[in-house]
Design a protein around this nucleic acid. Structure first.
Length: 475
RNA sequence: UCCUCGAUAGCUCAAUGGCAGAGCAUCCGGCUGUUAACCGGAGGGUUGUAGGUUCGAGUCCUACUCGGGGAGCCA
């Protein structure tokens, strides 16, 4: 049994406590334990959480959490308490609590931490259907009076300044829970499919693709760059383990100021030896379907909290529409959108193409010239590559980019020259084509974009616990 | 880097070129079933910064600072 009250249990002079005057100098309260009756472990109440409270219907329960909101009249007090799993209404009456403790609770500010004991029961008037009739209550720490996040609306800049507190609100909590489920189910899917997680380095000596602007940092007399992709390293580890994935943060120093960009984001990158382009698309489709299914099955409450109708996600089943780049260009031109064969797609193009379906859409066969140097050309049409983007519905953009990789040594050397990349930086990468090279493929999926799509967010920043953007590195 | 929009109380926002306001939060008081509870009262402002036009500027003009989201780039 946890002894959660030990030496910290102190009987504080009642002249000091329960007086609102005290709150004008909240510094004096720091580090103290306040509270009602000493609730030691021999009480019959059982520990519970909001999410499991229905199991104790009609019984005494003990709940540890934070005061989210309260409504009171002179003799009855409704405390809305959150505990990380959900929110529940706790009812305290002056009759039951006594004058002094009731006054103290009535004067608590938002986010004060509490331990309550009371009778769990169904009540149609309570949000969530259950409430706790409080018998005992202990104030673990009385919050200062100036908690910045109210239940009213706030602007994005203010909320991001308060991100360390903003994450406590039900919607932000739900998003982070969905994010955790997305990451967990991706690992589950890949592990069950025979992939081995192999971490790629964050500190790298040069750009992987030679395109994006990277963050750099001094590294014992030379320059290191924060990784923008683990792919090149994956291409090494597949030759040791067959099927691998790396999963971690990646960094882009691009000055992108849009709702679809962060400077630091998480990406999962599966890669497999002997995997062909067709098998790659099949893998992407199966993985996305699996993860969406998991989110529907395990995050129903969170989806409801964020306002995402699960029916929107129920539609995400194979097969996903597939469109060639050639057809996509024709379709865009037919709809009066300015594009020529050979141009890369911009955001407006992707948004239009994605709007053609309720499901994610594969676009395949991009022009060789606009894509990365390592992509395998189509054997029948060398002007296009075996690459595909997976565009999410509802304007969430490219959530996956993948391709078959060049396995031929001579062709890869030629491409490195064509892209004016420093040959010496790719010596080890070329080794992979010298010693037992095989056709292979892989893709990268952006976690925040996926989570934003699942939760129907209007900005990627809410899909990250502490988002990093061009204008923001704090908190 | 470019385009565009914005900055007024702790927060969200009002204010025809003419006395700077409301709701929430905070503080005081009231209320035994509240649902972002409600009712009464109080405190809270160098209107982003600097200059200009004007009898008079939160409002009009110029520059700057900071920020929003869009382009480019990409997950």
């Amino acid at each position: 049994m946890t002894r959660w009250i030990t030496s910290a249990t102190i009987d504080i002079d009642s002249d000091v406590l329960g007086r609102k005057a005290t709150l004008r100098a909240p510094e004096a309260l720091r580090g103290t334990w306040l509270g009602g009756k000493d609730m030691s472990e021999q009480t019959e109440a059982r520990d519970t959480t909001v999410s499991a409270v229905s199991e104790l219907d009609g019984k005494l329960a003990r709940l540890k959490g934070w005061l989210y909101n309260k409504r009171s009249s002179g003799k009855i007090l409704f405390m809305i308490i959150r505990d990380g799993t959900g929110v529940i209404q706790c009812v305290a009456t002056k009759n039951e609590m006594g004058e002094e403790l009731f006054r103290r609770l009535d004067g608590l500010h938002q986010e004060s931490s509490l331990i309550v004991e009371g009778l769990v029961h169904k009540d149609h008037r309570a949000p969530g259907g259950y409430e706790i009739q409080v018998k005992e209550c202990r104030v673990v720490s009385e919050a200062w009076p100036d908690y910045p996040i109210t239940l009213k609306e706030h602007g994005p800049e203010f909320l991001l300044d308060q991100r360390h507190l903003w994450i406590r609100t039900p919607t932000q909590r739900a998003i982070l829970a969905v994010r955790a489920e997305v990451m967990r189910s991706i690992r589950e899917f890949l592990d069950n499919d025979g992939f081995v997680e192999v971490s790629a380095p964050i500190l790298t000596p040069s750009a992987c693709e030679g395109t994006s602007t990277l963050f750099s940092t001094p590294y014992f007399g030379e320059k290191a760059y924060l990784s923008q992709s683990g792919q090149l390293y994956n291409e090494a580890t597949i030759m040791a383990l067959g099927k691998v994935y790396c999963f971690g943060p990646t960094f882009r120093a691009e000055k992108s100021k849009t709702r679809r960009h962060l400077t630091e984001f998480w990406m999962v990158e599966p890669e497999a030896a002997f995997m062909t382009f067709e098998e790659l698309l099949d893998l992407e489709e199966r993985m996305v379907t699996f993860v969406v299914r998991r989110v529907i099955d395990r995050c129903s409450k969170e989806l409801e909290q964020v306002g995402r109708d699960p029916k929107d996600l129920e539609r995400i089943v194979p097969p996903f529409p597939r469109m060639t780049y050639d057809d996509a260009v024709k379709l865009l031109q037919e709809n009066g959108i300015d594009i020529q064969w050979g141009d890369d797609f911009g955001s407006p193009h992707e948004t239009f193409l994605a709007s053609q379906s309720d499901k994610p859409v594969f676009v395949t066969g991009y022009p060789t010239k606009v894509k990365a140097f390592y992509m395998e050309p189509d054997p029948e049409r060398p002007e296009i590559v075996l690459a595909s983007d997976l565009l999410a519905p509802e304007g969430y953009g490219e959530i996956i980019g993948g391709s078959q990789r060049i396995h031929d040594y001579d062709l890869l050397v030629q491409r490195i020259k064509e892209h004016n990349l420093p040959m010496e930086a790719y010596d080890w990468y070329l080794d992979l084509r010298k010693f037992g090279t095989v056709p292979h493929s892989g893709f990268g999926l952006g976690i925040e974009r996926f989570v934003a799509w699942m939760c129907h967010l209007d900005h990627l920043r809410e899909a990250s616990p502490f988002p990093r953007m061009i204008t923001r590195m704090r908190p």
